[in-house]
Amino acid sequence: NQASVVANQLIPINTALTLAMMRSEVVTPVGIPAEDIPRLVSMQVNRAVPLGTTLMPDMVKGYA
């Protein structure tokens, strides 16, 4: 099963992502692949992401 990127904390809108904000977890539906975590660092979210939410490509500016 593919691990996805999950929010490790509440991430406010327009926040630049850091490693501490993300974790890898096997979830359904599948979100951004966990191997993309290094690429996500310093990218901004375009909405508030609650703790435990799977990051989807449309939630991260410049990812999709």
Rank of each mutant, 00 (worst) to 15 (best):
1 N>P: 15
1 N>E: 15
1 N>M: 15
2 Q>V: 08
2 Q>G: 15
2 Q>R: 03
2 Q>C: 14
2 Q>S: 08
2 Q>I: 10
3 A>S: 13
3 A>N: 09
3 A>M: 10
3 A>I: 11
3 A>C: 04
3 A>D: 14
3 A>P: 11
3 A>W: 04
4 S>Y: 07
4 S>K: 02
4 S>I: 02
4 S>R: 02
4 S>E: 01
5 V>D: 01
5 V>C: 04
5 V>T: 09
6 V>A: 05
6 V>G: 01
7 A>K: 00
7 A>E: 00
7 A>W: 00
7 A>C: 03
7 A>T: 12
7 A>S: 09
7 A>Q: 01
8 N>C: 03
8 N>S: 13
8 N>W: 10
8 N>E: 13
8 N>M: 07
8 N>H: 10
8 N>T: 09
9 Q>L: 15
9 Q>A: 14
9 Q>R: 10
9 Q>M: 12
10 L>Y: 07
10 L>I: 11
10 L>W: 10
10 L>E: 13
10 L>Q: 11
10 L>P: 15
10 L>T: 14
10 L>C: 14
11 I>W: 00
11 I>V: 14
11 I>D: 01
12 P>D: 11
12 P>T: 10
12 P>R: 08
12 P>N: 13
12 P>M: 10
12 P>E: 08
12 P>F: 05
13 I>W: 05
13 I>L: 15
13 I>M: 09
13 I>Y: 13
13 I>A: 13
14 N>L: 10
15 T>M: 09
15 T>N: 05
15 T>V: 10
15 T>H: 12
16 A>E: 11
16 A>L: 13
16 A>Y: 13
16 A>P: 14
16 A>K: 07
17 L>G: 01
17 L>C: 02
17 L>N: 01
18 T>A: 14
18 T>W: 03
18 T>I: 09
19 L>G: 12
19 L>N: 11
19 L>Y: 14
19 L>M: 13
19 L>A: 13
19 L>P: 09
19 L>R: 07
19 L>C: 13
20 A>C: 13
20 A>V: 14
20 A>D: 10
20 A>G: 08
20 A>W: 15
20 A>R: 10
20 A>L: 09
20 A>P: 15
21 M>S: 14
21 M>Y: 05
21 M>A: 08
22 M>I: 12
22 M>Q: 01
22 M>K: 00
22 M>W: 02
22 M>G: 00
23 R>I: 07
23 R>P: 02
23 R>S: 14
23 R>N: 12
23 R>Q: 09
24 S>T: 14
24 S>Y: 07
24 S>D: 14
24 S>I: 15
25 E>P: 00
25 E>S: 06
25 E>N: 13
25 E>I: 03
25 E>R: 03
26 V>C: 07
26 V>W: 04
26 V>Y: 10
26 V>F: 15
26 V>M: 06
27 V>P: 02
27 V>A: 10
27 V>F: 02
27 V>D: 02
27 V>S: 07
28 T>K: 03
28 T>S: 15
28 T>V: 09
28 T>N: 09
28 T>F: 05
28 T>H: 05
28 T>A: 10
28 T>M: 06
28 T>E: 15
29 P>Q: 07
29 P>I: 10
29 P>A: 05
29 P>C: 15
30 V>A: 07
31 G>V: 02
31 G>K: 01
31 G>H: 01
31 G>D: 00
31 G>L: 01
31 G>Y: 02
31 G>W: 02
31 G>N: 01
31 G>Q: 03
31 G>I: 01
32 I>F: 03
32 I>R: 00
32 I>C: 03
33 P>C: 04
33 P>V: 14
33 P>G: 12
33 P>D: 08
35 E>V: 04
36 D>N: 15
36 D>P: 00
36 D>R: 04
36 D>S: 07
36 D>F: 08
36 D>L: 10
37 I>L: 11
37 I>S: 06
37 I>F: 03
37 I>R: 14
38 P>E: 07
38 P>F: 05
38 P>N: 15
39 R>F: 12
39 R>I: 13
39 R>S: 06
39 R>M: 15
39 R>V: 07
40 L>G: 00
40 L>I: 10
40 L>Q: 00
40 L>K: 00
41 V>A: 08
41 V>R: 06
41 V>Q: 15
41 V>M: 11
41 V>W: 11
41 V>Y: 06
42 S>I: 03
42 S>H: 12
42 S>K: 08
42 S>R: 04
43 M>N: 04
44 Q>E: 08
44 Q>G: 06
44 Q>N: 14
45 V>M: 06
45 V>L: 08
45 V>R: 00
45 V>T: 13
45 V>E: 01
46 N>R: 11
47 R>Q: 12
47 R>P: 02
47 R>L: 12
47 R>C: 06
48 A>T: 14
48 A>N: 12
48 A>G: 07
48 A>W: 04
48 A>L: 06
48 A>M: 08
49 V>L: 09
49 V>Q: 02
50 P>L: 14
50 P>A: 10
50 P>H: 14
50 P>N: 14
50 P>T: 06
50 P>V: 10
50 P>I: 04
50 P>W: 09
50 P>D: 14
50 P>C: 09
51 L>D: 13
51 L>G: 14
51 L>F: 13
51 L>W: 11
51 L>K: 04
52 G>C: 07
52 G>Q: 06
52 G>E: 06
52 G>L: 06
52 G>R: 04
52 G>D: 09
53 T>M: 09
53 T>L: 08
53 T>N: 13
53 T>G: 13
53 T>Y: 08
53 T>E: 08
54 T>G: 03
54 T>Q: 04
54 T>E: 02
54 T>S: 04
54 T>F: 02
55 L>E: 01
55 L>K: 00
55 L>P: 01
56 M>A: 11
56 M>V: 14
56 M>N: 11
56 M>K: 06
56 M>Y: 05
56 M>C: 10
56 M>Q: 09
57 P>N: 13
57 P>W: 06
57 P>M: 09
57 P>R: 08
57 P>V: 07
58 D>A: 05
58 D>F: 07
58 D>Q: 08
58 D>S: 12
58 D>K: 04
59 M>L: 06
59 M>F: 08
59 M>Y: 14
59 M>E: 03
60 V>P: 01
60 V>F: 07
60 V>C: 02
60 V>N: 02
60 V>A: 02
60 V>W: 01
60 V>M: 07
61 K>Y: 14
62 G>V: 04
62 G>T: 04
62 G>Y: 12
63 Y>E: 05
63 Y>S: 03
63 Y>V: 07
63 Y>G: 03
63 Y>K: 03
63 Y>R: 04
64 A>H: 15
64 A>S: 15
64 A>W: 02
64 A>I: 15
64 A>L: 12
64 A>V: 15
64 A>Q: 12
64 A>C: 09
64 A>N: 14
